[in-house]
Structure formats: structure tokens, C-alpha cells
Design a protein around this nucleic acid. Structure first.
Lengths: 219, 219
DNA sequence: CCGGCCTTTGTGACTAGGTCACCGACAGCG
DNA sequence: CGCTGTCGGTGACCTAGTCACAAAGGCCGG
């Protein structure tokens, strides 16, 4: 077996015995797209290190509106769940497998042992924390203070990177930004009028990425 | 000296040697109101455990608008700064002494040792993390989805608990909610018209707390 | 006590964003 | 082909944020 551990730069500095312990006591799991990994009333039992696929973490408000908080990509960890994992408190957020995923599951006890024994592992965990928390700070700033047209442009560029198109419905885009479907429809219409995108059912093609990019970066 | 450590319920379970180590290697500091404890470009050097006073953590956006993220009260810790502390990454947020404060400062090295040695200490730290992170989730939900009149009513009740009045300017209240001063002025005017509050320069007196409370809890 | 000066608050006009109700357009499918 | 559920479009309306500027209220030196 190829060593999955090498896919996590932060773990490369682990001492050999720790490394072996981690490899031995964790197991690799696969989950189909759409699996709810954790959510209200469903605390995670393991710390997951993602090998393949992406996990979307989002929050559903009482009034039914939703917002995407962040995504965990291959090579990253669902580390915020460890706070939950250790404090036995459940989040209002849920984690969803956005694609089929493959991940390393580290049981709580092993996680605690590693935190205790290994300084590099602690560094790995706290670095991951730091990244997630700053992500949350950025979300707060954007939701509270930034215009949705700018945020939409940014998000389209982010999601369409590489492919040049985004296969999401207007409702799904609204969820990405914590906005409303009608607002997104109108903004997309405006982008289309300016020739930056072309929309069809369930898909937005980015037809003028430089222009979109310029707009996203302008005040 | 009275043992400050007993003021932190989460630390009461520390083993005696760990406890002594912590007491010996940390020091008690006092800072005047208004001190910037950490901020952009000013990473904290210690983990602070607050004995007296409150610390306000807020974020300033590029466009100058601000929002209060959370407060650290006596008996709590500035634990989110530890992510920063360990990952050497700086936040976009800043921590301000809202009153004169007295706190226990735990140097980074001691913090790392304690995390390594003591399971109760780890539990203390991760519980604190969990609380802060769920606070952030709540902020996101409120900013994104809740009406400002409801949020203002809630915040007035929260800030006026005990005293029945809130000594803040409209601008400061706007910062509490991440909103704009004019919006707060207008809402306060409406509350006043309904007889729930009475406003004067730099102060809002809550004159009908039950009514405010009912409003805050209603849809 | 007066007059400047800064801070705080009030206000109207306007723009942006969110809500509601409803409709039509487009699959997918029997 | 017509049924059905999802998706997108639209107008009316409401709430929130922005901008510009006016009016108080408090402070302080003279």
C-alpha cells in the first residue's frame, strides 16, 4: 500500500514510531457522495483526513436558509469537528460528502494520544484549526459587509477554476453565499447582459473570465 | 495568595504537579482599559486566562465597518489566540481590553507542555475552543439571516442585563451587530415610540424589558 | 457666561438586498 | 403526448445600508 501519510505535508515530520502508530490504528474508509458525515445530533466519532473528494460544511438556519461555511479538500482534515469530538458539544453545522470520498479515520482515543505524544501532530492540528477559523472570520466579514455581486463573481471564479463553468442551480449558488435565489438570478442576468457569463439550466459558463475577475477585484 | 486556578472550573481537575507547574510558570498581569491585546500584525505571546474584566474581540473590514465577534469574560480564556499562537498565523481580528483587566499569562512553551502532559488541560482548551467556534457559527447565522430589529432587541437585553441600561452610542451598538449607525438610530426611535426604551446621549434605558424580551423571542 | 469645536444623533433620498406570490419553461417519463 | 416536479423569471413590496447634511448636546478655554 502506498503510504497515505505522505499526502499530508504536516504529517511528514512525525517520528517513525508515532507514524507507525497512526498508520496502524487508523483505518481508511470510503463514503458515497451525499453522505452526512456529521450534523445536528450526529457527532463525528473520528477525525477524518481526506484522501479523495471534498466535504462541504454548511449551516442551516431556523428559517430554512442555508450558507456554505467551508470545504474540506483532499489533503485537509475535518479538524473543527475535533473540538466537538473532545468537548462533546454538537455544532449547528453539518458536513456533507460532496463527492464520493476516501478518508483516513482516526478514532478519538488515538487522536488524543497523538496530541499528547507528538509535537508535530499538535502543530498539524493547530495549523488546520487556524486555517478554518480564519476562513470563518472571512465569511463573517463578507456576509456582513460585502456586496453580493462581488461575492457572486468571486465565487463563480473559484468554483469554475479549471473548467470554466459551474454546474449549480441558482438556489445552490444562493446557498454558497447565504443569499436568496431571486437575488442570484437577477445578478446572473446582469452578468449575462454584460457578456461575462452565459447561463443555462443548472449551469453557468464563464465566457469572459478576465472581465469577471476585474469586476471581482474592483471596489 | 489566593489560588487563581480555582476560578477556572475546567482546571480544577489538574493533577497536583501539573497544577503547581502552571502556577509557577505563569504570571499574573494587569492591563488598563483600552489595551490592544492582539491584533493584525500583533500576535499574542501568551495564552490569557481572564481573572477580572472583559476582552472584546472584533473585526474591522476594509471599508471601515466593524463587528464584535465575542467577549471573553472573567473565568474564560482567549483560547482562539492559541491557534494563532501555535500556527504563527495572524488573525484579521483584534482583542481589546474593554475594562481594566487582570489575567494569567501562560507562555507559549508552557501551554505546549501542558497540552502534551495533561489530559484535563487538553479538555479545558478544547472545550473553550468549542464554545468560541459555536459562537462564531451563531454570529454567521445572525448576520446572514436575522432581522436587525430582533438582533438589536436581543443585544440590548444582553448588554443591559442587571443594570437595565446600556451606555453605548448608536455607533457602538451598530458595531455590536455589524450594522450601520443610521439603521440603529431608526430602530431605537421605533423602540422608543413603542415605549420599550428611552434614549439619551450615549445611553439607552430599557423601560419595558418584558415587552422587549417578547419581541426578541417572537419570530 | 459665551463661543467655538467635536461628538452624537436626526433625517430625507436613494440604492441594494431579501421576501412573496405567481408564472412559465424545461426536463424526464410513463 | 401530456403529466409532474424542478428551475428560472418577474413585479411589487419591504428591510437594510449609504450618502449628504443638519441639528443638538457636551466640553473647554477665554
Amino acid at each position: 500500500m502506498t503510504e497515505w501519510i505522505d499526502r499530508f505535508p504536516g504529517l511528514s515530520k512525525l517520528d517513525a514510531p508515532i507514524r507507525d502508530l497512526l498508520i496502524e490504528r487508523s483505518k481508511i474508509i470510503s463514503l458515497p457522495a451525499g453522505t452526512v458525515i456529521f450534523g445536528p445530533g450526529k457527532a463525528p466519532e473520528n477525525l477524518l483526513l481526506l484522501l479523495e473528494g471534498t466535504v462541504r460544511v454548511q449551516q442551516v438556519a431556523e428559517n430554512g436558509r442555508e450558507i456554505v461555511l467551508y470545504r474540506v479538500q483532499a489533503g485537509e482534515s475535518c479538524v473543527l469537528t475535533t473540538a466537538c469530538l473532545l468537548a462533546y458539544e454538537d455544532y449547528r453545522a453539518e458536513g456533507l460528502a460532496e463527492t464520493a470520498i476516501q478518508a483516513v479515520a482516526i478514532p478519538r482515543a488515538v487522536f488524543e494520544d497523538l496530541i499528547a505524544c507528538s509535537s508535530p501532530f499538535r502543530h498539524f492540528v493547530f495549523t488546520a484549526y487556524s486555517k478554518r477559523i480564519t476562513d470563518l472570520f472571512v465569511i463573517i466579514e463578507e456576509v456582513a459587509f460585502k456586496r453580493v455581486d462581488l461575492r457572486l463573481a468571486q465565487k463563480l471564479l473559484e468554483l469554475g477554476r479549471g473548467t470554466g463553468h459551474v454546474q449549480l442551480t441558482h438556489q445552490q449558488l444562493a446557498t454558497e453565499l447565504g443569499s436568496a435565489r431571486e437575488v442570484i438570478s437577477r445578478q446572473l442576468h446582469e452578468f449575462q447582459r454584460r457578456g461575462w457569463v452565459s447561463a443555462s439550466r443548472g449551469e453557468v459558463r464563464l465566457t469572459d473570465i478576465p472581465a469577471l475577475d476585474g469586476f471581482a477585484k474592483a471596489a
